[in-house]
Every structure is written in C-alpha cells, then in structure tokens.
Computed example of a mutant assay.
Amino acid sequence: MNKQELLDAVAAKTGTTKAETTETLDALIGTIASAVTQGDAVQLIGFGSFSTGARAARIGPNPATGAEIQIPAAKTVKFTGGTAFKNAANGA
C-alpha cells in the first residue's frame, strides 16, 4: 500500500474528503518526524514507538575495491512495533 492508497482507505473509512485526510496525515507524519528529530520518542499505544538511535563510527570494506574505509558515526531512526501490532501481523 502506498500513501495514496492509504489516504483513499482512511478517507473512505472516516467519511472525510481526500483533501482533509491528506492534510491530517501530512500533519501527523510531520509532527512525528519533528519530535523524533528533536530526540523525543513518540509512542502510539497499540501500534509502536518511533525514536532515534546512534550508530558508532566503524571501519568497513569499500564494495568496489575491498580496501578498508572509515564509515562515520550516524543517527538512525528506529521503529519498534507494539504488542497489538505484532500480534495482528502474526495473525494472533
């Protein structure tokens, strides 16, 4: 399912227009992204948690030559599925 299909499904289920649904979904995604980039975790009970993590600097191989290269440290985005979401995905 892509974003447009998600918008269509939510609009049909809630009885709102696609424009209103698009505005709401964009606001939700923007708010989650803003909170996570500021270092806050966002927990949606029954769905999951969004947070940031850190990946340490390390040495790895250059895929083209095999030579060792320095890979810099980086921030990562993490999503951990909630229990209800995991159960639904596993058919329980």
Score class of each variant (00 low, 15 high):
Lys3Asn: 06
Lys3Met: 07
Gln4Glu: 11
Gln4Leu: 13
Gln4Cys: 11
Gln4Gly: 04
Asp8Ala: 08
Asp8Phe: 02
Asp8Ile: 04
Ala12Met: 11
Thr14Glu: 07
Gly15Trp: 01
Lys18Ala: 04
Ala19Phe: 11
Glu20His: 15
Glu20Leu: 11
Thr21Phe: 02
Thr22Met: 11
Glu23Thr: 13
Thr24Cys: 07
Thr24Trp: 08
Thr24Ala: 15
Asp26Cys: 05
Asp26Phe: 04
Leu28Cys: 10
Ala33Pro: 00
Ser34Arg: 15
Gln38Ala: 14
Gln38Lys: 15
Gly39Val: 06
Asp40Thr: 08
Asp40Lys: 14
Asp40Glu: 14
Asp40Ser: 11
Ala41Cys: 06
Val42Cys: 03
Ser49Tyr: 05
Phe50Ser: 01
Phe50Lys: 00
Thr52Asn: 06
Gly53Asp: 13
Ala56Arg: 14
Ala57Ser: 11
Ile59Trp: 13
Ile59Leu: 10
Ile59Cys: 08
Asn62Ile: 09
Pro63Tyr: 00
Thr65Lys: 00
Ile69Leu: 10
Ile71Tyr: 05
Pro72Asn: 04
Ala74Ser: 14
Thr76Val: 07
Lys78Ala: 03
Phe79Lys: 07
Thr80Ser: 13
Thr80Met: 10
Thr80Arg: 15
Thr83Val: 14
Thr83Lys: 15
Lys86Leu: 10
Asn87Asp: 14
Asn87Thr: 12
Gly91Ala: 06
